[in-house]
Amino acid sequence: MSTATPVLRTTPLNALHLELGARMVPFAGYSMPVQYTAGLMAEHHHTRQAAGLFDVSHMGQLRLEGADAAAAFETLMPVDVIGLAPGKQRYGLLLTDEGTIIDDLMFVNRGDNLFVIVNGACKEGDIAHITQRIGSRCNVIPMPERALLALQGPKAVDALKRLVPGVEKLVFMTGGAFDWQGADLFITRSGYTGEDGFEISIDGERAEAFARALLDQPEVKPIGLGARNSLRLEAGLCLYGNDIDTTTTPVEAGLNWAMQKVRRTGGARAGGFPGADKVLGQLDGTVPVARKRVGLIALERVPVREHTGLQDASGRQVGEVTSGLLGPTIDKPVAMAYVAADQAAAGTRLNAIVRGKPVAMEVSPMPFVPQRYHRG
């Protein structure tokens, strides 16, 4: 019986990561940098203070083409696709027929097509699902030849506008086409750190040269997956596979804000997405919500990791941590968890059971660190 280790894929920046001294780990089927020589804490703080460059080329990029693309895509999600103006970006949720989350994604109306970015670990399944459900109504075109870079932090705009003049005119959740030395770029002002920043789609063959040009800017340092995780958790953002998955509904996950009113109440476009009866029922209270995603801050300096059980004061098991670590910016242990709905109110005290001992935690609003998106 073969026990061969599966061969990891690499991104177009793999040689650069090794040159920069990255510690590489398996992630979503790829060999990815978890940190560089400065270490996770330094990388986290640098992104909050200046600008960090992340390789997110493991993510899936695709475009949906055809006159019916927006209406077709809207049938898969509880999200307003038809009403999204050209140049605007939106967060979306692919749902199962039971109303649970297949994946979360970002999409942009590029005028003549929808540009979609999905999570790396889910991309093959997502593309197959989208193609199977709406491939007869629009062209579903994967873009494996494209790399994806994220430049995040308060000084990201200063660094990027030197190379790509005009990007400073973008505001949060907008995007546009740009050029760098003959390479076509599609850039959105977005990211997953809670900071101002950009995501840049570029042909894989030009990605290393462009990454080097960014790293030549005085504000920019390379940042690995470790700091990406701590930044997104402090920003209160879900990680697919940890905080949301096919066992969680958007309402349980506290993602009500991602479902626009036009898809929720009255009108011809309300409902009509997979699992709509359950999701809309949870929204209006006719279907009970047994558990909810919450933020937690530990009241003592003990990091609380994923899969840690949570108990109330009487010792009753009331939930489980889905993401947790010592937040470098807040300098306290923070976590996300699903807890019984009657334990989800801010200020509720719970005990995380760490190595058999209770660690006191308090339900806290998120984000743990204020988000600093550039809204213009």
Rank of each mutant, 00 (worst) to 15 (best):
D312L: 07
V164E: 07
C122A: 14
R137F: 01
G52R: 03
F27E: 08
Q343K: 09
G271Q: 07
I187M: 08
E19H: 07
G275V: 01
G347R: 12
Q282N: 05
A209L: 11
D55V: 13
T96M: 12
V118Q: 04
D112I: 07
R48D: 05
V7R: 14
K278T: 11
T100P: 05
P86G: 04
L148C: 12
F368Y: 08
T3W: 11
I202H: 05
R269P: 01
S136H: 13
L231G: 03
F172C: 04
E43W: 02
L64M: 05
R63Y: 02
Q152C: 08
T322G: 02
E98H: 15
R63N: 02
F172T: 00
V318C: 06
W257T: 11
P144C: 05
R269D: 04
R146Y: 14
D112R: 14
P154W: 00
N113K: 10
G236Y: 01
L94D: 04
Y91G: 01
G315F: 12
I101N: 11
A72N: 00
A15G: 11
G87K: 00
I82L: 08
V164D: 13
I330V: 15
M366L: 15
F198G: 05
P222Q: 10
A51G: 10
V363W: 02
D126M: 06
P86M: 08
D277S: 14
N351M: 11
H307M: 09
G309H: 11
E219L: 01
R232C: 03
L76G: 02
G66Y: 01
A258K: 10
L326H: 09
D243T: 04
Y240R: 09
V25D: 11
T247L: 14
G182E: 07
P358G: 07
L62M: 15
A85C: 02
A352Y: 04
E65H: 10
M1Q: 11
R162N: 06
T131C: 07
G319D: 07
A72V: 01
L114F: 04
T3P: 00
V108L: 13
D126R: 02
L280H: 04
A51W: 06
P367L: 00
F107K: 09
E98S: 11
A270L: 07
L283E: 14
L160I: 06
A213T: 10
G194H: 05
V140N: 02
T265S: 13
G21T: 10
T193E: 05
A209C: 08
A67M: 09
P222R: 06
T286E: 14
L163I: 09
S364L: 09
V164C: 12
M336K: 09
P78D: 13
D196W: 01
I101H: 08
K278I: 15
T248K: 14
A209V: 10
L163K: 12
T37W: 02
R228K: 12
A121Y: 10
A28S: 13
G29R: 04
A67R: 13
R212W: 03
G191E: 06
G52V: 10
F273C: 04
N242D: 10
G281M: 11
